[in-house]
Design a binder for these strands. Structure first.
Lengths: 159, 159
DNA sequence: TTGCTAGAAGATATACTATAACATATCAAG
DNA sequence: CTTGATATGTTATAGTATATCTTCTAGCAA
């Protein structure tokens, strides 16, 4: 994991994810429209969280939308379909890096460079589940977000 | 845990918490001013998250502040001193129910009645820690928030 | 063909959340 | 008494999000 914090073939990484998304939407019978595709692409281009208004700015440049709802609608669509996640802590969004499978994501957010890595928190959920069911609480969704410093940034700070 | 979802002697519960907070502040050499005290009291009166502007409204009624910064400053103080927590998911705040000890809180948020229960997520942190350190990521703070339905609300819905 | 329907996008307005920046007050230490 | 630290007052504005109504488009049915 944490490929997000390392160098990799990013163009390929983006292209793959877009193709996968396309497929996923076709299978689900939902429309992967140009705006939605472009928004996902925008998110994929960075491994960090972008605010809705950042996304909107880029949409404007492409003539794909000009008002907040355009961005929010596309982002909501992506989140609902598991193609992106909302980072509560930042009021921002990242592309999902685990493919559109059902999972409980956990995020590592670098306070220095703002990169966001997605990791899966199986055990974390288990522990919480237990505690919740004891209380008779039925969980429908879990958010796990950690702030800190990623390796590259720490190295740089130490250097 | 989950006392939040059950009936209990609430006045006592509030009084105890306020007394504890008073102590904690005295020990820490920080000022537990009237506004701060009142804000904590407001949060304690409900076992649910209140937005900064909800808090502000009540402060206004008491003549303890009239502008947003008044509420935000007090809330920031409480959070910084471990007397309250911010619920990212709701852009809102709850009083801490675990005393001002250092802990990684996890929250169970009822989508129906908006009650918020605080539970401690030892294991959740452990799992995440491991995954993070593998990536060389140094965690400074973790947010764990679950949405769902609390027992009373589910019973009511089922009834 | 026409018209219906549903989902998507456009457009306007506004609500909600949060902070910047500067001014004032209070109090204790030097 | 002045200085510095902390808290609060005040004004203005930045940033995030959604409600609502309209228009468009594609697919389908009469």
């Amino acid at each position: 994991m944490a490929r997000e914090f390392e160098h990799h073939d990013h163009e390929l990484c983006v292209a793959d994810a877009l193709a996968a998304a396309e497929n996923h939407c076709a299978n689900g019978g939902v429309q992967f429209t140009p705006v939605r595709r472009r928004v996902l692409e925008i998110l994929l281009e960075e491994h960090r969280a972008l605010g809705a208004y950042d996304v909107l700015d880029r949409l404007k440049e492409d003539g794909l939308g000009s008002q907040p709802p355009a961005a929010y609608r596309a982002l909501d669509f992506l989140v609902k379909n598991g193609l992106a996640h909302r980072i509560e802590r930042l009021n921002a969004f990242v592309a999902c890096t685990h493919g559109p499978t059902d999972h409980v994501p956990a995020f590592l957010i670098c306070e220095t460079c703002n990169a966001v890595a997605e990791t899966v928190s199986q055990t974390a959920l288990g522990a919480l589940d237990e505690s919740a069911s004891k209380a008779g609480f039925e969980i429908s969704q879990v958010v796990v977000e950690a702030r800190g410093i990623c390796a590259p940034c720490r190295d740089e700070a130490g250097a």
